[in-house]
Design a protein around this nucleic acid. Structure first.
Lengths: 334, 334
DNA sequence: AAGTTTCATAAAAACGCTTGCATTTTTGGT
DNA sequence: ACCAAAAATGCAAGCGTTTTTATGAAACTT
């Protein structure tokens, strides 16, 4: 049907110029006489020439492709970030290679090697934690890296987040102001710094600010799943908790439904604030009060930061904190 | 820190062999004396050599990368497919370039050109419809294409789906058997063949099989959003519908919540079956009865089919239908 | 022992483009 | 008109692989 391989050489021949000139017009180099440019463009059109990005990448050492490491695309939190990333990438003429890591260190390393072999111009990493091995690879490689929605305690690479500690303090504070004394902290693994060093600290900050004791039996470490949340109701009631701050929406829905299914009224007998303001918060009844994180923007800003790095522009601040907010819905009162 | 660029040539020099031999060991070509292979592998290890995939791509005309066109990653339906795609891709050593299209014809064409320029070895397309322009590009290009969860009436390229018509008939039939006479069909745009030619037909099939009249005022064409569903309650009650078959989960949740918020009891006064069995169906109260599509598998099988095509293997059947099922939950009775 | 095969390896030509440098053409000042 | 400076273009050397072809060495044949 078509033999396809129209090369820059074919265009050059037809247009009676050298490959170099064709290359210049394709790349928008201004040093081409307008008349010549027209002629070349016409031939390109006629021949339906499309530059081979692989050859271009080899010659220029730029692939206009960035690698994106994501724990799981089906997770709304991360896919929202990914959407922001892709939109900005497209805006700046980059493509993204998306790779699921399942948060597995081994898979991450493998994926990373792969991405570097493909000569991506930059990397965006998402995950709850950053293993030492991955971190080491990052600092050893000269490929720019930005973390999106992910904390690097060392702040070696770029990152975009909200102030998790402050946000946590803020919502727990609200729960206290609303009259709760025993507030559960429900999170994923506390081995993730983002949970233990930021959110849990924020929780403690709020307790302290209100002269409430920190009670370890109110801290629940589980995994980010609906089922896990659903199962928590008995422990919560046993601990005497009248409210909870949950750090993942799916988990939060599980907790809430678990309570409701066992006759505990929300928000009358139990109040709850979650963290990501995904569509889930709006879909359940009662609707859930949540911290609202600018997920799309975190992704978008991360990608924007990365473009600057890839472009070797001056970066004023590579650790970016975006503003957050809280939206009150039916799972809290007042 | 590191000058990074260890090339095959460096390895060859250190190991005292030619580049060709290094290439052979890297690519697992058997024509290498074991002793030589060991020596080369050792040097590769020492130098931490990593083959440059771009150069490899240029020389071999294979990029081990496939393009994936997706309407929107944040949509659980599509991200589930994408997850299946990526897992199988990884299994076969491919990477995926993920590009959001927003179902916009213009964006799709642009993305497609981009992907082809990047010399992807294959393409997976997802979307509700296939524009003529895109279809034309597919058939003109020699790059293999598979549609995932997407219908091509011409069946020119590979595709993986469930039998939407049959599934629709099946659930509407159940609704009728449960005593409903006036069943609404709530879908996205009927300009999409998947809706008009398959699901709506299945709906009609069921009516006919049960000697019920087809009433156009029970067909609701809207967009796939929660809000759109929420707004539908008044029209539904006005039309006298006592049940609905909804073709998107988010839309269905909207419909159900809209009903509930206006005092209509589900399932007592209104029953509802949705189509994708995503987590939403399990999270709402009452839980929603749904067709269960093997979303992950559709993506996985699509990718597997694509690997065969890229490998020029014999394909027995390129239009694949996967089995579906129905899971009964609280939004229907009995 | 000479002639065939096979194996293992090397040499070098692609692959399709970018880019620094050299060269030619155009422009503008006088 | 003439020359220097500026603009436009061409040349050719990469970029880091794969792959074809050629060659040398080892292993059989008879």
């Amino acid at each position: 049907m078509d033999k396809q391989t129209i090369t820059i050489y074919d265009v050059a021949r037809e247009a009676n110029v050298s490959m170099a000139t064709v290359s210049r017009v394709v790349n928008g180099n201004p040093n081409v006489k307008p008349a010549t440019r027209q002629r070349v463009l016409k031939v390109i059109e006629e021949l339906d020439y499309r530059p081979n990005a692989v050859a271009r990448g080899l010659a220029s050492k730029k692939t206009t492709t960035v690698g994106v490491i994501i724990p799981d695309v089906t997770n709304i939190y991360f896919s929202s970030l990914a959407r922001g990333i892709d939109d900005v990438a497209t805006m700046y003429k980059y493509n993204i290679i998306l790779a699921n890591s399942d948060e597995s260190g081994q898979k991450e390393v493998q994926v990373l090697n792969n991405l570097l072999a493909k000569q991506v111009d930059g990397l965006i990493y998402m995950g709850h934690t950053l293993s030492d091995e991955v971190r080491a690879k990052f600092s050893r490689s000269k490929t720019p890296v930005v973390l999106a929605g992910t904390i690097d305690p060392d702040a070696q690479v770029g990152s975009v987040n909200i102030d998790y500690r402050e946000a946590s303090k803020f919502v727990v504070d609200k729960l206290i102001k609303d009259g709760n004394q025993k507030i559960a902290f429900i999170s994923g693994s506390l081995s993730y710094p983002i949970n233990s060093q930021y959110r849990l600290q924020g929780y403690k900050d709020a307790l302290k600010a209100n002269q409430l004791p920190y009670d370890e039996s109110l801290v629940f470490e589980t995994d980010y799943s609906y089922k896990a949340g659903e199962a928590l109701w008995s422990q919560l009631t046993a601990a005497g908790a009248t409210a909870a701050y949950v750090i993942d929406d799916e988990l939060a829905v599980g907790v809430m439904n678990g309570m409701l299914d066992h006759g505990i009224k929300v928000p009358d007998e139990f109040q709850l604030i979650t963290s990501n303001n995904t569509i889930l918060t709006d879909i359940v009844r009662p609707k859930m009060t949540s911290i609202s994180q600018p997920l799309y923007d975190i992704g978008a800003v991360a990608m924007r930061l990365l473009t600057k790095m890839m472009n070797k522009e001056e970066i004023e601040e590579k650790t970016i904190l975006l503003p957050y907010d809280m939206v009150e819905r039916g799972s809290t009162k007042g």
